[in-house]
C-alpha cells in the first residue's frame, strides 16, 4: 500500500498530464461501454430512462449474435470483410509510405506541396458524392467507360451487375480516398528524421535507394507497425459508404460487396433491434481485440520496443 502511494507521488507529474485525457476517456468512452450488456439482452423501454431499460430488459444469452452466423451468407460476409481489409492494410501501407517518401524526395518542393494538397481532396468528399462520381464512369447507358469501350467496338458492360470487376473497383476507390490522408502522418515522420543520418549515409556512398532502405524505412518502422496493429484491430469493421453507396446497393454485387457492416445494416432495417446491432459491434470489437493482442504479442517477441504495449 505504502509503495503504491509513493509510486503515485513519484509519478505525480505524469499522472497530472494524463489526468484530463483520462477523465475524458472515462466519461466519453468507458462510461457508455455499460451499454454493451445490451448485446445479451432483449431491449425493452422502461419509462424511467435508459438505465432502467437496460436493467429491466430480459437476458437472452447469445440470442442476439445468432443471426451473424446462421446462414451461408455469414461465411461470405466474413470472408469479404477480412479479405478486403487485408488488402487495404497491405496496399494502404505500401501506397501511403511510398507516396510519402516520393513526396518528400521530389526536387520541386512547390510541386510536392501542390500534390499533397490535391491528394487530400478525396478525403473531403463523402461516399454519397463519390458514388455519383463512380456512376458517371460506370453507368451502363451513359457511362464514360462504356462510351470509350464503344469507340473500340467492345460490347458495353453493365458494370453494376457484373461482380467480377468490383473487388478491383472497391480497392481502387479505397486507396484513392485514403492515400492522401494516410501519407500525411508518414510525411510528418520523414520530415522529423534527423538530416544528419542521411548525410552520414551519403558520405558512406549510399545511393538514394539505399538511403531510403537503410534510413527512411527503418525510421518509419515503429509508426508502420503501430498503425498496422491498429488497423488489424479494425479488421472486422469496414467503411460502410464504400461498400453500400459506391456499388449503389446493387443486389447482383452482394457476393463481392456484402460485408459485416452492410449485412447488419440491411438485416436490421426491418427490425430496428438495438440488441442485435450492439451484438454485431461487440463481435467485431472482440475479434479485433483478440487479433491485436496476438499481433502485439508477436511483435513484442520479435522487437520489444515496437510493440504497442
Amino acid at each position: 500500500m505504502k509503495k503504491i502511494v509513493s509510486d503515485i507521488y513519484k509519478n505525480r507529474i505524469w499522472l497530472l498530464m494524463v489526468l484530463p485525457g483520462t477523465i475524458w476517456l472515462l466519461l466519453f468512452s468507458y462510461l457508455p461501454m455499460f451499454g454493451q450488456v445490451l448485446a445479451f439482452k432483449k431491449f425493452r423501454i422502461d419509462p424511467d430512462g435508459f438505465f432502467a431499460s437496460v436493467m429491466h430488459s430480459e437476458w437472452v444469452g447469445w440470442e442476439n449474435f445468432k443471426y451473424l452466423f446462421s446462414t451461408n451468407d455469414a461465411l461470405v460476409i466474413t470472408r469479404n470483410t477480412i479479405l478486403y481489409n487485408l488488402v487495404f492494410i497491405v496496399l494502404g501501407l505500401v501506397a501511403a509510405v511510398a507516396t510519402a517518401i516520393l513526396l518528400s524526395e521530389l526536387v520541386n518542393k512547390r510541386l510536392s506541396k501542390v500534390y499533397q494538397t490535391g491528394m487530400l481532396f478525396p478525403h473531403f468528399i463523402s461516399w454519397v458524392i463519390g458514388s455519383y462520381f463512380v456512376f458517371t464512369f460506370l453507368s451502363s447507358d451513359r457511362g464514360l467507360l462504356n462510351n470509350v469501350l464503344g469507340w473500340f467496338h467492345i460490347d458495353a458492360v453493365s458494370w453494376y451487375s457484373e461482380p467480377q470487376y468490383w473487388p478491383y473497383i472497391i480497392i481502387f476507390m479505397s486507396i484513392w480516398k485514403g492515400v492522401g490522408y494516410g501519407s500525411i502522418v508518414y510525411l510528418a515522420s520523414i520530415v522529423g528524421i534527423d538530416r544528419t543520418y542521411y548525410e552520414a549515409a551519403m558520405i558512406d556512398g549510399a545511393s538514394k535507394w539505399k538511403q531510403i532502405k537503410h534510413v527512411t524505412l527503418p525510421m518509419l518502422k515503429p509508426l508502420m507497425i503501430i498503425l498496422t496493429i491498429m488497423n488489424i484491430g479494425r479488421i472486422f469493421n469496414s467503411d460502410f459508404g464504400l461498400f453500400y453507396q459506391v456499388p449503389r446497393d446493387s443486389g447482383a454485387l452482394y457476393p463481392v460487396t456484402n460485408v459485416i457492416d452492410t449485412f447488419v445494416y440491411r438485416g436490421l432495417m426491418t427490425l430496428g433491434d438495438i440488441g442485435m446491432s450492439t451484438a454485431a459491434g461487440l463481435y467485431q470489437s472482440a475479434v479485433g481485440f483478440i487479433l491485436v493482442m496476438i499481433t502485439n504479442y508477436i511483435v513484442r517477441k520479435v522487437d520489444n520496443e515496437s510493440a504497442l504495449f
Binding site: 445468432k66 443471426y67 443486389g251 456484402n258 438485416g267 426491418t270 442485435m276
Partner: peptide, 20 residues
C-alpha cells in the same frame, strides 16, 4: 421477436434479388 435471426438474413437476401 421469435424469428429475428431469420428476418435479418431474409432481408439481406430479398435486397439482393427483389429489385432486379
Amino acid at each position: 421477436d421469435p424469428v429475428r435471426s431469420e428476418i435479418a438474413s431474409i432481408t439481406n437476401i430479398s435486397k439482393e434479388f427483389y429489385p432486379a
